[in-house]
């Protein structure tokens, strides 16, 4: 069995504060970073050099690049959604959320320039000019996550009370997968078959998107906010513990099966990310470790980086071999993550 290697750092910068959100431009050339205080910073993907700061974006909670790379959307505790032309120093539009609600989630659709944003109980879709495409109100509580399906036909959002699955723009084309519990995070499987949610009460709840059939995996030590699907939609990696639990959705699915359990962190997992093509999983922990796993060899991580400050966010660089890691200290590092034959 091969030993774990050390992750090599390509670049390393320190920003103002806790890294709360990371988003890569789709070509991997730029990384946008939101810290809990201070403006959003855009870093050069190759060197880590600061390309620009976006003025007026203090308190940004969420950010995302459009699939064509032309737009960057930011949302924050100032109750605004801002849409920036890529590289621009002024937003194209600033949209106010109703009643000053925090804009906590933003996601661009694949294929077309529509951005879904969640502020309070309202899920809204705008185009890049800020025109409303569709709105879905009436959620039971504040939305905690928003995701598009890979084909862009469905947007799913969760909150306390269940998951809304919506084919925008008509509000009539939405249905609720109801659940009496507080759902904190949501990830749609890339094939669109499943929607997985992490819950406050230490559980992961999964629905079959078409039939609405559901199953629950419970017994996590703490609330589950860390979820990631691999590209073929076979593996669902989950946090809520220092141990990473990976469920296998191939064959009959995970019900009654034994998941993989990845042991390498000594404190809670803070974020999980799968590589866009490889069966390679990255995990960041409160213990300051960033680990890269090959699921074919789950006994130990293939590569390790240890750091004093807790890791907070991870994002694989698109079209490259880089893994960006954000830390609670405000540090951002780009690790070199080759294939290691995994």
């Amino acid at each position: 069995m091969s030993k774990s290697t050390s992750l090599k750092t390509r670049w390393d910068v320190t920003l103002s504060d806790y890294v709360g959100a990371l988003a890569w431009a789709p070509d991997g050339g730029a990384l946008a970073v939101a810290c809990s205080t201070g403006a959003v910073v855009v870093l050069d993907g190759g060197s880590g050099k600061c390309l620009q700061e976006l003025p007026g974006t203090e308190g940004t909670l969420a950010l995302d690049w459009s699939s064509d790379g032309a737009w960057l959307a930011t949302g924050g505790s100032d109750g605004t959604l801002r849409i920036w032309p890529s590289g621009g120093v002024a937003p194209r539009v600033i949209l106010d959320a109703p009643r000053g609600a925090w804009v906590e989630h933003v996601r661009w659709a694949p294929e077309r320039p529509w951005v879904a944003s969640a502020a309070g109980k309202l899920l809204a879709i705008h185009d890049a000019e800020g025109r409303v495409i569709g709105e879905l109100a009436g959620h039971a509580s504040t939305l905690t996550s928003v995701r598009w399906s890979q084909d862009g036909s469905i947007v799913a959002a969760c909150c306390y009370g269940g998951v809304t699955v919506w084919s925008p723009p008509a509000p009539a084309d939405a249905r609720l997968l109801s659940w009496k519990g507080s759902l904190l995070a949501l990830e749609l499987s890339p094939d669109g078959e499943h929607v997985a949610c992490g819950a406050q009460d230490g559980a992961v709840h999964v629905w079959h998107t078409r039939t609405g059939a559901d199953l629950e995996m419970s017994g996590y030590p703490v609330k589950v906010r860390e979820l990631a699907w691999d590209a073929p939609s076979r593996w669902l990696a989950t946090g809520g513990s220092p141990e990473i639990t990976v469920w296998d959705f191939s064959g009959k699915g995970p019900a009654g099966s034994r998941p993989l359990q990845l042991q390498g962190h000594t404190d809670l997992v803070a974020d999980l990310a799968f590589h866009e093509a490889r069966a390679q999983l990255a995990s960041g922990g409160r213990d300051g470790r960033v680990l890269v796993w090959s699921l074919a060899r789950p006994k130990r991580p293939s590569a390790i980086s240890a750091e004093a400050a807790a890791a907070s966010k991870l994002a694989f660089q698109p079209r490259g071999d880089g893994l960006a890691a954000g830390y609670e200290s405000g540090r951002v590092r780009l690790f070199d993550v080759p294939g290691w034959g995994g």
Binding site: G79, R99, G100, A101, W102, G120, K121, S141, T142, Y160, W179, K180, G181, S182, A199, Q200, D201, A203
Partner: peptide, 12 residues
């Protein structure tokens, strides 16, 4: 400011 209404979550 608490921008949202109070949200009391019962566990499952």
């Amino acid at each position: 400011r608490i921008a949202s209404a109070e949200e009391v979550f019962e566990m499952n």
